[in-house]
C-alpha cells in the first residue's frame, strides 16, 4: 500500500507543522529560563518533551485514520496530536496553561484531551495501552466503526501494561494497533541496556499477533505498514504491533544536556532528518516545485503562528477554577 501524491504532501505538510510547532514552543519555553534554567519559570512552565525527528511515526499512521478512530499517545504527544487533527490553537493554549486551552489549563502538555477527534495522551509510560484496548472493545460491543491506536515509546515495551494489553487485545481480537516509537533512548538508558530482544516487533509473536519492524524513520514505509495493519483491524482481523525505528532529535525533555549520547550521534541523526528527506523525495518523484514547497512551508508556518498567537493572547483561568471539573 503506497500513498498518493496528495497523501504524501499531507504527510509532508503535517510534519512541517509539527516541527515548526516544536521549534516555536522550544524558543518560548526558554523565555524566562535564561541565564538560570528553572523549569517553573517563563510562559510555558513544567516539563516539555519535544517530538523533533519522530514526525514520521505520527503522519504515517494517522494518514489512515479519521476523527472517529481513537488514539492514545505518550508524554511526547504533539506530533501525534497534530497528525490526528487536534485543534492546534486550543492545544497551544493548553500548553501555555490558558483558559482557552483544551482543558482550561488543568492538563498541560502531557495531558491533552480532544474528544472531538478522539485523542488523548498521558504522562505515565504505557498508560494509554489499556484505554486503547478498551476503546476498541467499546467499538466492537457497540458495532460502531473505528480502530484504536496506542502509541508508546520503546521503553514502555518493558512495562507490564504493554504485555497485558497485547494479550488482552489479541485474546479478544480487537481492532487495536500498537505503535512503538523506538527512538533508542529511555531518557538516558539505551535500548540495548534495557531490552532483552533486539527489537520489539519480535514480542508480538508471543501474543499471537503480527509484528512489523519498520526501520529508516521513513514516513512512506510507515504509511504502507500502518495501512495494512489498520485495514486488517477494520476488517475484524485483530491487533497488530508496529515497531518503528525513529530518531529523537531533541533531549528527553527541555533542559536535558544529553551527555549520555555518544559523540557525534546527534549530528548523524540531524543529517538524516526525515523532513528534508521527504521534501527531496517529493521533488524527485512527485514533481514538487520550489514554489509548491514554499507555499506548503508558508501554510504550515501560518497555522503555527496563528495557534501560538491565540495561546499568547488568551487569558489565564481564574485561580479558583482549579476547584471545578473534579467530577462530571
Amino acid at each position: 500500500m503506497l500513498p498518493t501524491r496528495d497523501q504524501k504532501v499531507w504527510m509532508y505538510e503535517t510534519m512541517l507543522v509539527s516541527r515548526y510547532f516544536e521549534e516555536t514552543i522550544e524558543a518560548i519555553y526558554l523565555e524566562g529560563k535564561k541565564p538560570v534554567f528553572n523549569m517553573a519559570k517563563g510562559p510555558i512552565p513544567g516539563e516539555m518533551h519535544l517530538s523533533n525527528g519522530q514526525e514520521p511515526c505520527a503522519v504515517g499512521v494517522c494518514a489512515h485514520l479519521t476523527p472517529k478512530d481513537v488514539v492514545t499517545s505518550t508524554h511526547r504527544p504533539h506530533h501525534v496530536a497534530i497528525a490526528k487533527g487536534v485543534d492546534l490553537k486550543r492545544m497551544a493554549a493548553e500548553i501555555f496553561g490558558k483558559k482557552t486551552g483544551l482543558s482550561g489549563g488543568r492538563g498541560g502538555h502531557m495531558h491533552i484531551f480532544d474528544p472531538d477527534v478522539n485523542f488523548s495522551c498521558s504522562g505515565i509510560i504505557g498508560q494509554g495501552m489499556g484505554p486503547a484496548v478498551g476503546a476498541a472493545l467499546s467499538r466492537k460491543l457497540q458495532g460502531k466503526e473505528g480502530v484504536a491506536v496506542a502509541y508508546i515509546g520503546e521503553g514502555a515495551a518493558n512495562q507490564g501494561a504493554f504485555h497485558e494489553a497485547l494479550n488482552l487485545a489479541a485474546v479478544w481480537k480487537l481492532p487495536v494497533i500498537f505503535v512503538v516509537e523506538d527512538n533508542a533512548w529511555g531518557i538516558s538508558v539505551a535500548k540495548a541496556t534495557s531490552t532483552a530482544v533486539p527489537n520489539n516487533a519480535m514480542r508480538a509473536q508471543a501474543y499471537g499477533m503480527p509484528g512489523h519492524l519498520i526501520p529508516g524513520n521513513d514516513p512512506i514505509a510507515i504509511y504502507s505498514a500502518a495501512g495494512e495493519a489498520i485495514a486488517r483491524a477494520r476488517s475484524g482481523g485483530g491487533p497488530t504491533l508496529l515497531d518503528i525505528e525513529t530518531d529523537r532529535l531533541a533531549g528527553h525533555f527541555m533542559g536535558d544536556a544529553e551527555a549520555y549520547r555518544p559523540k557525534g550521534e546527534l549530528d548523524a541523526l540531524r543529517a538524516r532528518d526525515p523532513i528534508p528527506a521527504l521534501a527531496r523525495r517529493l521533488q524527485a518523484e512527485d514533481g514538487l516545485s520550489d514554489d509548491d514547497n514554499g507555499a506548503i512551508m508558508a501554510r504550515a508556518r501560518g497555522r503555527v503562528d496563528e495557534a501560538i498567537k491565540f495561546a499568547r493572547e488568551s487569558d489565564y483561568p481564574a485561580p479558583e477554577e482549579a476547584l471545578d471539573k473534579v467530577f462530571a
Binding site: 489499556g130 484505554p131 486503547a132 478498551g134 460491543l141 501494561a161 494489553a165 488482552l168
Partner: peptide
C-alpha cells in the same frame, strides 16, 4: 459472554480498558 466478560488475570489491562471503554461511551 460479550456483555459479561471473563478477563485474563490482567488487572492493569482490563482496568485501563474500562477507562478507554467508558471514555468512548460505554458504562463498564
Amino acid at each position: 459472554a460479550e456483555r459479561v466478560r471473563d478477563t485474563p488475570i490482567s488487572e492493569t489491562a482490563f482496568m485501563g480498558a474500562a477507562v478507554g471503554a467508558a471514555s468512548d461511551g460505554m458504562r463498564p
